[in-house]
């Protein structure tokens, strides 16, 4: 474990805490894409299939359980909670997220880490995570008013994978000296998708103005 990876995991955890805080305190999920949240449930479940078969560390197991548990809880809030589900921006959250699944699965079959079920699903989860934010970014472009917690959530979510890229560079030079095409390329694509958002988010933060993404 290096500081970059720990910072990445904590940033990821913080993004989820911010999202849960928004939903629980404001009893609203306005501006949050249910489709992105559903994709994250799939990402975590297909990535952590080894949860009970491979013990890496207490930290690793605990974080996997937290990520699976919180992502399911967020989907539950947005779909079933009697108050929160009324605030879901159903009409704007229209990205056909299920269309992302077949290409990622085919790519996982073509370029798996290893040709075993768990490794194909692990690769699938890496590819899917890279594009899972698309529905959320589309929704932000359509939201006339992005609240601070939603903006912070997306920013932290993008920042976590950027920190992971630094972790991979660090590990390459200090530990493994091996190139990891699957997570590295996917991580770069994932972080690049946030570039536009990062630009407007930092600009709005510097100018103390409301965050708005050009349509």
């Amino acid at each position: 474990m290096n500081i970059f990876r720990l910072a990445g995991d904590m940033t990821h955890l913080l993004s989820i805490v911010v999202l849960l805080l928004k939903i629980r305190t404001t009893k609203s999920c306005a501006g949050i894409s249910l489709k992105t949240q559903e994709l994250y449930v799939i990402v975590f479940i297909t990535r952590y299939l080894d949860l009970f078969t491979r013990y890496v560390s207490f930290y690793n197991t605990a974080m996997k359980l937290v990520f699976i548990g919180t992502s399911v809880a967020i989907v539950w809030y947005m779909r079933l909670h009697k108050v929160v589900k009324q605030t879901y921006s159903r009409d704007e959250d229209t990205f056909k997220h299920y269309l992302l699944i077949p290409p990622c699965f085919i790519l996982a079959l073509l370029i798996p880490l290893e040709f075993t079920v768990t490794e194909i699903l692990w690769s699938f989860s890496i590819y899917l995570e890279a594009v899972a934010i698309l529905p959320q970014l589309l929704l932000l472009q359509r939201s006339s008013n992005i609240d601070n917690l939603t903006g912070s959530y997306v920013f932290l979510l993008g920042a976590y994978r950027a920190l992971y890229i630094v972790n991979w560079v660090y590990r390459f030079f200090t530990e493994t000296h091996k190139i990891r095409w699957i997570p590295w390329i996917s991580g770069l694509v994932q972080t690049a998708l946030y570039a536009d958002f990062f630009y407007y988010y930092i600009k709005s933060w510097k100018n103390h103005e409301k965050l708005r993404l050009p349509a």
């Binding site: 690793n60 974080m63 490794e119």
Partner: peptide, 10 residues
């Protein structure tokens, strides 16, 4: 096994 290094990350 080299891939363990891959799977010790979240």
């Amino acid at each position: 096994e080299e891939d363990d290094e891959m799977h010790d990350e979240l």
